[in-house]
Amino acid sequence: MNPWSSSKEAAAGLCSRFGGWRLLGPGLLWTTVFCLLPMVVVLAVSLATRGTYGGVVWEFSLDNYRDLLHPLYGRIFGQSLLLAGMTTGMCLALGFPLAYYIARLPPRRQALWLIFIMIPFWTNFLVRTYAWIFILRTEGLLNTVLMQLQLISTPLDLLYSNQAVLLGLVYGYLPFMVLPLYAAIERIDPALIEAAWDLYADRWSLFRRVLIPLTKPGIIAGCVLVFIPSLGAYLTPDLLGGARSMMVGNLIQHEYLVARDWPLGSALSILLMLIVMGSLLWYFNAQSPQIRERGEQ
């Protein structure tokens, strides 16, 4: 017996009565104008040729995609994937204990902690990234404090490095990991954790055999929410990475605005989108076994 059948029939009835297309119209129009159309433009530009003084010459060519094979781009994509992957891993490593701690607090204190997690969103991300520059730079807060404490004699070179970018990305995207994890952990019946404990599980086994499987949808959602935006991050590597660290986002910006090579920038954008779509497909595939299980019951 399919539990959805009745609601499906009801929806079908609604559609035939009012005319499906007329109901879908506004949503379709929105999607077409603001999502589909720009993508078609980008795709078209990526298949065109660059003019001598910038601009686009509408002459079909696959050269831009051939150019992507250049090892320099490969390195930048590789570095972006690595940084995004490390950001995701660190957010998960930091976010899971935090989310677990919050989810096990009494409800009132949970709300307080969740507000703490979300307070940074009240300030512009750009401003918060500048704050990191202030902390990390050579005469910055961190170096000053460390030198005052005489832990170091010369200032550390912290800013404008991959490490600074990683720090900035983890800082920026940690809430996107914590919130879905919190939602998943909070739904676990505390008796299940007690049951594992009662059945001789140590902390690690509890985590590996019970918590991870039960919070898998939350873990995947958190990873997707962190990985995708950090892969395409522009602001953080631009401000904290400087010239030494370039990610895909900066590369695309460079091609569009500095090199004035729109077709190549478009081809890079399409490649980035394909990678993101690939990881989203993986996400839906990883989710679907559970959906299938639920459907069977």
Binding site: D189, A191, L192, L199, Y200, A201, R209, P213
Partner: peptide, 30 residues
Amino acid sequence: NRRPVNLVFQSYALFPHMSVAENVAFGLEM
């Protein structure tokens, strides 16, 4: 987890992602 006792919970607290046999084997595996 070090006590020689096992509790049958009021809500049963069976691990929803494990089969019957896996649930029963859990303590011995630990």
